[in-house]
Design a protein around this nucleic acid. Structure first.
Lengths: 146, 146
DNA sequence: CAGGATCCAGTAGGATACTG
DNA sequence: CAGTATCCTACTGGATCCTG
């Protein structure tokens, strides 16, 4: 199944699925991945560098559950677990359990996950890079409508 | 031109803002743009072609409110209006009112909006392109945990 | 046509407590 | 450590009615 049909299937899929249609499964998938925590989890697991800022600093490596919860400041354990389960089910992250005591669990991106992470990282970077501009626009809008 | 918040600040912004921090404004912005309807509205206004499939078909042009609601199948008028207002306030879309009777309102992407749309289009395309793979992963996961 | 205003159900998501 | 289970609230978002 996973063979050279990669690019061929990709092209066919683009014609099959259309997120503009309410009933299309891709609409649900879009809804899933359009999530703050999904973006941040992927970013954390993928290393936060724009491309390869410092190959040493935050290189993509498996992260422990506790590392993730520390990295994603403010995330509740419920949302973190829920997000991780969802990503695991969709095959975007792989979960590794080492039966030490207490157990050691780590997460890392799959190939599929990395392909999405590359896109989501850009979105996260966009948000950080254009924050000032957006803030200024909001002020202008609010002043205009006040 | 010693403006502290002009272009120099943009570069610094990448270092200033960090969506991993709960209190950072960019976290809120990330939350805003990580929205199904935002993605779809931007895609609709930007033309849905992957890059330039048919320069004639769905070229980026201003869209009427009713055109948008038809394009985004299943969107409620509340969500559409709310999304458009939010995008307008953030300076991602421009709203044009022509005082005919009844009024004619159209929306188009701003420069800033186009910069984000380019990223979000990739995300939407990703969802459509990898739908089959994700679906297969879900089946495998569900079978495994059943 | 392009919304504004309400009402209301569903659920996302936080806080807390417990467990292998 | 890495969760699961439960409770509970607040907000999301759809449906409906109304207007310039």
């Amino acid at each position: 199944m996973p063979t050279p049909s990669a690019s061929a299937a990709r092209d066919a899929a683009k014609l099959e699925y259309d997120a503009f249609l309410a009933a299309c499964p891709s609409r649900q998938l879009l809804d899933r991945i359009s999530d703050k925590w999904v973006t941040l989890v992927l970013a954390a697991l993928g290393g936060d560098g724009p491309v390869a800022r410092q190959p040493v600093s935050t290189a993509p490596r498996p992260l422990r559950y506790s590392e993730l919860s520390r990295r994603l400041a403010g995330v509740s354990q419920k949302m973190l677990t829920q997000t991780l389960r969802s990503l695991e089910r969709d095959g975007l992250v792989a979960r590794h359990v080492v039966p030490t005591v207490p157990v050691t669990v780590s997460y890392e991106l799959t190939e599929l996950g990395r392909s999405l992470q590359a896109l989501m990282r850009d979105v996260k970077d966009w948000a950080e890079a254009h924050m000032d501009e957006v803030l200024a626009n909001r002020d202008a809008y609010d002043a205009r409508t006040a």
